[in-house]
């Protein structure tokens, strides 16, 4: 008896702790006071219903009886007399079986609406009792999704049939293209576009062959177009000297009225005589320079042609009429200090 009482106390403590665990799982963490209450010093008579140990004893007895009965039944039903008795009984209770079948059918027909009514009546309460947030928090959605074979699902879908059912026109009518385009970052979009590759595929000749340039030019306001051109900026980027170098000024002066104007404005024997004298002087100078260079065995091409400001890169258009010389900023130039002079 003493052993049985002790066993009863232990099983009651286990049930109490299980109950506490279940309660904790449902309502969250327990208060410290409650944890203290469920310790070993708690009186089991005060906190537990008295019928648990009796219920356990009944369940244990029933299980034992069932186990023994199953063994006996198995042994009995497998014998030949039992099989004969079973067959005889089946024949004798056939009318009862048919009657019972009818009753079950009627109960099934009538029980459907009643069960539905019962479900509708109790469902809200059941839903309220269920902590959906807790249930959903316990669901590992990623794990569920990872188990889904999307490719297999998509492979089963007949997209052609699906698209055939879609009314694209009606769909597009519902789209606000202005709002849609307002959301598009055209800059980022164009940065991704490889214009070179795009243009390489374009047949410009075929494209231009279809353009009516005459009609296009008729609509162009050339005055407005030229008015917007910054000629100063344009000319600053042009190498005028290179352009002028390509002009045959000699032919221009010789064959145009410009030559006559120049001749008339500077005509006179004195100016021509002066030109001749100067030209002759330059010729003699060069002759002397060549003689001296040859005498000194000096490479004339290695000699400086003139002062750096006049013949170097920074030279002005060199000493033409009205073209002032650059101002000297120092009284003694670099050339003056050069000992090699």
């Amino acid at each position: 008896m003493l052993l049985g009482q002790n066993h009863g106390v232990e099983s009651r403590d286990i049930r109490e702790s299980e109950a506490v665990n279940v309660e904790s799982a449902m309502v969250g963490p327990a208060e410290p006071e409650n944890q203290q209450d469920h310790g070993h010093s708690v009186n089991p008579e005060a906190s537990s219903p008295a019928g648990y140990w009796g219920l356990d004893a009944a369940l244990g007895a029933a299980a034992l009886v069932g186990k023994v009965g199953a063994g006996v039944t198995g042994a009995v039903t497998s014998s030949t007399p039992a099989k004969f008795a079973g067959s005889l009984t089946q024949r004798l209770v056939a009318p009862l079986s048919r009657y019972g079948n009818d009753v079950r059918s009627r109960v099934a027909d009538g029980a459907g609406p009643a069960v539905g009514d019962t479900v509708r009546r109790f469902t809200p309460g059941v839903i309220d009792a269920v902590d959906l947030n807790g249930v959903l928090a316990g669901v590992d959605v990623d794990d569920i999704v990872s188990r889904v074979d999307v490719n297999n699902i998509v492979g089963r879908v007949d997209l052609d049939a699906l698209m055939a059912r879609v009314d694209v026109g009606a769909l597009l009518e519902r789209v606000d293209l202005n709002e849609l385009m307002g959301r598009v970052d055209l800059g980022a979009l164009l940065e991704r576009v490889d214009l070179n590759a795009l243009l390489s595929n374009v047949d410009l000749n075929a494209l231009l062959a279809n353009v009516d340039l005459n009609a296009l030019l008729l609509n162009v306001d050339l005055n407005a177009l030229l008015g917007g051109v910054d000629m100063e900026a344009l000319l600053s980027n042009m190498d005028i000297n290179a352009v002028v170098d390509q002009v045959d000024i000699d032919a221009l002066v010789r064959n145009t009225e410009l030559g006559a104007i120049i001749a008339q404005s500077t005509s006179g024997v004195a100016s021509e005589a002066l030109d001749v004298a100067r030209s002759q002087g330059v010729g003699i100078d060069n002759l002397l320079a060549k003689l001296v260079d040859r005498m000194l065995r000096r490479d004339s091409s290695a000699l400086p042609e003139g002062p750096p400001l006049l013949v170097g890169n920074a030279a002005p258009a060199a000493l033409t009429v009205g073209n002032p010389l650059p101002e000297s900023e120092s009284t003694t130039s670099e050339a003056d200090r050069s000992p090699g002079e």
Partner: peptide, 14 residues
């Protein structure tokens, strides 16, 4: 000298 050359060319052109 450039103007001198143009003068020369202009005279001989005329």
């Amino acid at each position: 000298a450039r103007s001198a050359r143009w003068r020369f060319l202009a005279r001989h052109g005329n």
